[in-house]
Amino acid sequence: MVPTSFYIFLAALLFTIGAVAVLFRRNTLVIYMAVELMLNAANLAFVAFARQFEALDGQLFVFFVMTVAAAEVAVGLALIVTIFRTKHSVDIDTMRELKG
């Protein structure tokens, strides 16, 4: 059997890739997808720990995370569409009205 730590490390690796992608990319949609990737990494860790401790709560937490992600995507994409109407761009660096 695969040790749990392998799964956790895999989750950590995916999370780091997602975080770096957030810092790297300029396309707002891609950044969004990177965030989804990070959520997925966290989900993997949840499921792995649920298996380790034989507790279903971890799996249910993943279920709720997915629900919230669905809601977040719905609102977030609506926001992006609205912003696109005025900016005509999905470049995140063009959204910098709030600055010191």
Partner: peptide
């Protein structure tokens, strides 16, 4: 596969 796909996203 998962890592490769993530890097692909990146």
């Amino acid at each position: 596969v998962a890592i490769a796909a993530a890097l692909g996203l990146l």
